[in-house]
Design a protein around this nucleic acid. Structure first.
Lengths: 147, 147
DNA sequence: GTCAAAGTGTAGCCAAGGCTACAGAATGTT
DNA sequence: AACATTCTGTAGCCTTGGCTACACTTTGAC
């Protein structure tokens, strides 16, 4: 498999940069779940006073079992506070994260809407995109939308 | 955890829509790997004639073991053709997918650059974003960049 | 031809995030 | 108080996608 005549350097995209980009994307993916959860918990708390497991499972489109296990992880990581058969609360760190997510989500949706994207598509795309927008890009989107 | 006084309907974001958006994001995530791989294979083949496991592992920022296992899955799914100790080839389906990915990646990067994002950040963000851009949004981005 | 280096393959481990099936707790109605 | 419903929790299974460690093939140089 050794390439006998390897053209010294004609990388379409520099290999190291792409590898780093993909590593970054994987890191982001690891925190996506946390972000989705704290955002949902904050929303539910705002809308109806408190968040419970079934509400979250409906909201997130997974079973209550998945919610339960994930909450345990988020508690381990310090984002939420959970006790058996009790409501779910965000810690200070969780609230902070939720706030940032909400802001970022809003900016991304507003930007997409400003491009003429339908509301439904904007919501769907934003949900996927928002976790991968750097501060630099987020600022640019906000500026572009606001102009 | 039953909410005694549940306000009938004051969802910040409609629960069903968000659940569906998240489900969509998860579906996209499942195909992200395939897209990254076929894109890398196509690039390597274009740049140096053929793609091998170590090249891919360097390119993707994972070990050769991970590449190997993933290639087995992609073969199962009909995107690549692999034989022990032989070069890696894309099937027709794989080539088609790679072409689409490349186009989409180009559009996203060009758009970010047009917003004034630095090249490096544009690459990193694009890598995360490109998998979550709907055809509708992609068209809008292309139009916006090209205008 | 030999041999070392590089590439490839395999075994087995881990965590995350899905799921079903079942058991126990809380709640609201009667 | 009893009961049915809903909610919550647990056990155990699956797939994906990381990894290290070790074994085997190819390749290139001598």
């Amino acid at each position: 498999m050794k390439k006998p005549a390897r053209p010294p350097a004609k990388p379409v995209r520099p290999s190291a940069l792409q590898a780093e980009s993909l590593r970054q994307t994987r890191r982001e993916h690891a925190s996506e779940t946390a972000e989705d959860y704290v955002e949902a918990i904050a929303d539910l708390a705002a809308a109806q006073g408190e968040a419970c497991v079934v509400d979250l499972s409906r909201r997130l489109g997974v079973t209550h079992v998945t919610v339960n296990r994930t909450l345990a992880r988020l508690q381990r990581e310090g984002y939420v506070s959970v006790q058996p058969y009790r409501a779910i609360f965000l810690t200070a760190a969780g609230s902070k994260l939720a706030k940032e997510c909400r802001r970022r989500h809003g900016i991304v949706v507003a930007f997409l809407r400003s491009l003429g994207i339908s509301e439904k598509t904007a919501e769907i795309d934003a949900e996927g995109i928002e976790h991968h927008v750097s501060p630099e890009t987020l600022a640019a989107l906000a500026k572009h939308t606001g102009k």
